[in-house]
Design a protein around this nucleic acid. Structure first.
Lengths: 189, 189
DNA sequence: ACTACGCTGTACCGATCAGTACAATAAATG
DNA sequence: CATTTATTGTACTGATCGGTACAGCGTAGT
């Protein structure tokens, strides 16, 4: 049995890692009990809704993290370019420089997609819109800002796929760097 | 029971759709028998290796399709820009304007990733390298070509994730259009 | 027509799935 | 300490998993 996890927060983080590594279907109760050190009794006591509730809570946690570390800075930073830089830093940290995969992206592709469709959709629209708004404030034409925001969010997701496929975090780092530079470009309409 | 599938080629196509829609784990033998109209007896007669062999064959089929419709034009087209344009057309067709998802990308993210790691890796490296070579031939600085190729391949994957999450193929179409334009840009080093 | 063989459906296998029931234990409260 | 309450491990459920065994069938070759 793995080390016992004391606090609920840590448990949610651990669940997130498991879902990221194995997907929703692949994260069986047996691997969850093993990795968290919690028996089924404890798990179902904490999450009466079972696996679906665990995934739901993890998704909410992810959404909250992005809200705090990405969306708020994008929206409220006095200097929009600083907010955008902050976003890229946060993304690099969150995805562990490409070693981690995007849970929401994973869920968006596999057969879990319908179950969490609303959460997945919200995550990406919120991100795209917050970034587009920041780019607009930074001098981009609104239409160009929207296009650039889509490019950046899609580019990050794609970079995660590519880095994972090559087992090479450097691919992710390079892609992030280029995306960041493009947001600082001069052609803005 | 669904309509009986006559030819092996059609069967492989059907298997591809099932894996795309449900992932490797989610594509249970029961849904495969139902969707293909073939019983387990037939399936295991055709693919003695079971599900793993089915997925392997589908991956090979995808690789062959890209080799023929994407990599060869990229490598052999007299006009590299025409080869690149051909690639974008093929991609739009293959992914059904964003309604279809990339099987390889899906496998790269979920827990199937280790099982097919070699095939996944080859798919993306072959694509990136063929595109980078074409861009170089088209006048890009070799380093810029490599970066652009990574951006394009990652951008396509990300656009598929985004389009799927928004259930909006237009997101994919727009992203492809922008990627294509960037390959035609004038800043090449 | 007869044989041989490839294809097929079906019944079955042990393993594992998510989830439940519940008794034993631990912790909190008096 | 006694009693209540919350947490936990374990044994179980029925369903489904991937895979196997095999008998029945159709067709081709002769």
């Amino acid at each position: 049995m793995a080390h016992r996890i004391a606090k609920r927060d840590e448990l949610i983080v651990a669940l997130g890692e498991i879902f990221r590594e194995r997907g929703f279907e692949g994260a069986s109760l047996s691997v969850i009990t093993e990795r968290t050190g919690l028996g089924k009794g404890s798990l179902y006591n904490l999450f009466p809704g079972g696996k679906a509730e665990m995934a739901q809570v993890v998704l909410e946690e992810v959404a909250a993290w992005f809200e705090r570390h990405v969306f708020v800075p994008l929206r409220e930073s006095a200097d929009p370019a600083a907010g955008i830089a902050h976003m890229f830093d946060a993304v690099i940290r969150f995805f562990r420089s490409g070693r981690r995969v995007c849970l929401v992206g994973t869920f968006a592709l596999d057969d879990t997609r319908d179950r969490f469709a609303a959460e997945i959709r919200t995550y990406f629209t919120a991100w795209t819109e917050a970034l587009a708004a920041a780019l607009t404030r930074d001098g981009f034409d609104p239409q160009a800002a929207r296009a650039m925001a889509e490019d950046v969010v899609a580019g990050i997701q794609g970079a995660l796929v590519l880095a994972r496929s090559q087992q090479d975090p450097a691919v992710f780092a390079r892609a992030i760097e280029r995306l960041h530079q493009r947001t600082q470009g001069t052609q803005r309409d």
